[in-house]
């Protein structure tokens, strides 16, 4: 057990009998850090995200997230751990189109251990997050996300990922569809929210221009080549 937000050692993953798509000798990210992880398409970034989220199991090695060995958790416990401790934002935002903005944000509360508390508190918290992330028109909160712009949808996705006050926020190329101004504004807001909550941020992208927003930049190639200490 370590006090790092993320600690991976000798991790390999393959789909079935195929050759491994991911090899990581070692990865350590300290709590509260903001990390940019880069790598070309097909380098295993999304697989790494799934391993950290506890949705996939590695064939070898250990994956510790927020001090928890993911392999030691049963499937249901891992799902609850993800709902309560890990926030995820995807490239396509992955919102449920039949729910409103607020309903999408409070969704993790439905699946967290012990639930998120009272519904009214959840909604207030969700609205505060949406406002903090730049979606400050309350008229949009009850609107179906399918009727929001891409930028607005992205803020809803980020608010959903931060809803459970997660220890770790993993963002998988969420800014690839945005122009540079919107992207920078979004990253600043996201970083501020993470700092306020003490959340570690792992931001996956292949965009070099994002590096100034982060404490450290890692590449998939470096992770594969690193030797365990």
């Amino acid at each position: 057990m370590s006090d790092a937000a993320i600690a991976l050692r000798d991790v390999t993953f393959a789909w079935g009998e195929a050759p491994p798509v991911l090899r990581i000798a070692e990865l350590r990210i300290a709590t509260g850090e903001r990390i940019l992880l880069k790598g070309p398409s097909g380098s295993g970034k999304s697989t790494l995200v799934a391993l950290l989220a506890g949705v996939l199991d590695p064939q070898g090695g250990t994956v510790e997230v927020l001090g928890q060995d993911m392999k030691a958790l049963g499937r249901a416990a891992r799902d609850r751990f993800r709902a309560g401790r890990i926030g995820l934002v995807f490239q396509m935002f992955n919102l449920l189109p039949y729910l409103s903005a607020v309903e999408n944000v409070v969704l993790p509360g439905r699946f967290m251990a012990g639930r998120a508390g009272k519904r009214a508190d959840s909604v207030t918290h969700a609205e505060r997050l949406l406002a903090a992330l730049g979606l400050d028109d309350p008229a949009l909160y009850r609107r179906s996300v399918a009727k929001l712009s891409q930028g607005q949808q992205q803020r809803v996705a980020a608010a959903r990922a931060l809803f459970a006050r997660p220890g770790l926020l993993i963002a998988d190329e969420p800014t690839s569809a945005l122009d540079s101004d919107s992207r920078d504004q979004f990253l600043n807001l996201l970083a501020a929210e993470c700092a306020a909550a003490g959340t570690t941020l792992l931001f996956v992208s292949h965009d070099d221009a994002l590096a100034p927003h982060f404490d450290q930049t890692l590449t998939m190639a470096e992770l594969a080549a690193a030797r365990p200490v």
């Binding site: 949705v55 799902d79 993800r82 919102l95």
Partner: peptide, 16 residues
């Protein structure tokens, strides 16, 4: 399947 994947991402268990 995308809808199911989203639900999984926010913590839904396969049983749910």
């Amino acid at each position: 399947r995308r809808e199911m994947a989203i639900l999984r991402a926010v913590g839904a268990r396969p049983g749910q």
